[in-house]
Simulated scan of single mutants.
Amino acid sequence: MKSLQDVLYNWLTIKVVSDARPDDTAAKDTTELFEEKLIGEHQLSNIEFTKDDTMYYVTYLQEGEPKKTRFPRELIEVMLDQINQEPEKYQNYPLED
């Protein structure tokens, strides 16, 4: 089992990608996987995030108790930046019927 901090970091990183690329099915599926871990393994609910010029802030309830953590933007946006710099390497493939 990964630490809560690791799962939150991974979830937020792929969530930012998924939000920026709504047709990216792999990003959407991966976001859902990490959400399941946050809810099932770490008992989180009401997971939300905001950002400012330097940080992302994640707020959530863990077993009913409000909590907050933060991550530097450059760490969270590194995957999206890489995708935007080389989009040909990150094509979305439609689901097969």
Rank of each mutant, 00 (worst) to 15 (best):
Y60C: 10
I47E: 04
K68C: 10
R73E: 03
T69A: 05
T54R: 12
Q82H: 13
E48F: 15
S45G: 13
T13C: 07
I14Y: 02
V58C: 02
V16T: 04
Y57C: 03
I83A: 03
L38Q: 00
E74I: 06
Y9W: 07
E36G: 01
R73L: 10
I47L: 11
D6F: 07
L44S: 07
V16W: 00
Y90N: 14
V78W: 12
T13W: 04
V78G: 08
N46K: 10
Y90T: 12
Q91P: 15
K89C: 15
K51F: 15
F71R: 03
D19K: 01
S3A: 12
R70A: 04
D23R: 02
F49S: 12
D24V: 05
M1T: 05
E74V: 06
D81R: 13
D81G: 07
E77Q: 09
F49P: 12
K28M: 09
T69W: 06
Y56G: 14
A26N: 12
L80I: 09
I39N: 01
K68T: 10
I39E: 05
S18I: 06
K68G: 08
I83R: 08
P22L: 05
D52Y: 08
P72K: 10
L4C: 04
K67S: 13
E77M: 11
K2V: 03
N46R: 10
T13F: 03
T54P: 02
D81T: 11
K51N: 15
L75D: 11
K51W: 14
E74N: 08
A26V: 11
W11H: 09
K28A: 07
R21E: 08
T69N: 06
L44D: 05
R73W: 07
V17R: 00
V78E: 14
K15L: 00
L4N: 02
D23T: 09
Q43F: 09
L80E: 05
S3K: 07
S3E: 12
L4Y: 02
